[in-house]
Computed example of a mutant assay.
Amino acid sequence: MDYEFKKNTLDGTYHAIFSMGHEALGRWLIEEVGRDLEKVEHILSQIGALKNSSREWRQVGEELTLSLQDNEALVQANYLFSEDDTELDDDMHFYDEECMALCGFEDFEQMLQAWRAFVIRF
Results as ranks from 00 to 15, higher is better:
Y3A: 11
E4V: 10
E4N: 11
E4A: 12
E4Q: 13
E4C: 09
E4L: 11
K7L: 13
N8E: 15
T9R: 10
T9M: 11
T13K: 04
T13R: 02
Y14D: 15
Y14W: 03
A16S: 15
S19K: 08
S19F: 04
E23L: 01
E23G: 03
E23F: 01
E23S: 01
A24Y: 00
L25G: 12
W28M: 07
L29K: 00
E31N: 11
V33C: 04
G34S: 04
G34W: 00
R35E: 15
L37N: 02
K39F: 01
V40Y: 01
E41W: 01
H42K: 06
H42A: 11
I43V: 09
L44G: 10
L44W: 05
S45I: 08
Q46R: 12
I47E: 03
N52V: 05
N52H: 11
R55D: 15
W57F: 15
V60T: 15
E62V: 13
E62K: 14
L64W: 08
L64G: 09
T65H: 05
S67E: 13
S67W: 02
L68T: 13
L68R: 05
L68P: 12
L68F: 07
Q69C: 14
D70L: 10
D70W: 09
D70R: 08
N71H: 09
V75Q: 01
Q76K: 04
Q76T: 10
Q76V: 07
N78I: 00
Y79E: 07
L80K: 02
F81L: 04
T86I: 07
E87P: 01
L88F: 15
D89S: 14
M92L: 13
M92A: 14
H93W: 05
H93S: 13
H93Q: 12
H93F: 07
Y95I: 04
Y95E: 13
D96E: 10
E97N: 07
E98C: 05
C99M: 05
C99F: 09
C99V: 12
C99Q: 07
C99N: 10
M100R: 09
M100N: 06
A101T: 00
L102W: 03
L102E: 05
C103Y: 00
G104A: 01
G104W: 00
F105G: 13
E106N: 14
D107W: 07
E109M: 10
L112N: 11
L112S: 13
Q113E: 15
Q113R: 15
A114R: 01
R116N: 07
A117M: 03
A117L: 07
V119N: 09
I120S: 09
I120N: 08
I120V: 14
